[in-house]
Nucleic acid binder design. Structure first.
Length: 235
RNA sequence: UGGCACUAGAAACC
């Protein structure tokens, strides 16, 4: 079972979903990890609706979804924007007390955000019983940045430092993105500069973000300077 | 003492 699940997972991770399904179908014995590997693979691949179907089938077969299982199911809901399904997964999570796991909470926040319900995402963020991780903060900042309110995203970014979390390059990207959406040019430039000061590595996305920000503000010379200062190949 | 796990922008192009 271990070897077959490993094989299944390799297929799933490389996006070869047909072979992943084939291995799954041909397995004599399957345990929870076999199901999880396929559900997650389908969810992150091109077949999130099949992932949800498999998730439902699991119950029919009398298997109990665990924390890893619901992550796959939530990921599928996020991709599909399937809020109804997402809420029912969340209900299950609460019934089974799986929400004492930060990773599960993070996935719920992300699911709500991707389904466009930023307020609910924030409610979960605010009321979660477990300790917030860096990913928790990043997910919520990104949610505000993309689907909601740039100002709130920046507020949260500042708040995370007060809470003792150290922003990484994803946090900065999320905050920069918030500036792009909200047109907060100076704030964005400040953030971009503080990355260097704080020793957070920049990648091409960070550069792209400020360049876009400056470009839209008509500050083309500055944008051009930044492009020329890039230590990597611009895309 | 093994296998499955959460977050990554915009524009342009198609």
């Amino acid at each position: 079972v271990l070897l077959q699940t490993t094989l299944l997972d390799v297929f799933a991770k490389t996006g070869d979903l047909n072979n992943a399904c084939y291995v799954f179908d041909e397995m004599g014995m399957r345990d929870i990890a076999s199901w999880n590997a396929l559900i997650a693979g389908l969810a992150q691949g091109s077949r999130p609706s099949d992932a949800l179907e498999l998730f439902k089938n699991m119950k029919v077969e009398g298997l109990k979804a665990n924390d890893v299982t619901v992550l796959g199911a939530l990921s599928a809901c996020s991709q599909l924007g399937a809020i109804k399904e997402g809420e029912s997964v969340y209900n299950y999570i609460r019934d089974e007390r799986l929400d004492d796991n930060v990773i599960v909470c993070n996935a719920v926040i992300d699911m709500y955000a991707k389904c466009g319900l930023v307020e609910k995402a924030y409610w979960v963020f605010d009321n979660m019983s477990c300790r917030k991780s860096l990913v928790t903060w990043n997910t919520m900042i990104m949610a505000f940045a993309m689907y909601g309110d740039g100002v709130k995203a920046i507020e949260l970014f500042k708040q995370m430092a007060q809470a003792g979390a150290v922003p990484d390059n994803v946090s900065y990207l999320a905050a920069l993105c918030a500036c792009n959406h909200a047109g907060m040019v100076d704030e964005g430039v400040r953030l971009f500069e503080s990355m260097a000061v704080c020793g957070v590595s920049r990648n091409v996305k960070h550069y792209g973000s400020v360049v876009d920000l400056l470009g839209r503000a008509g500050r083309l010379e500055e944008a051009y300077k930044i492009i020329n200062s890039m230590p990597m190949v611009p895309d």
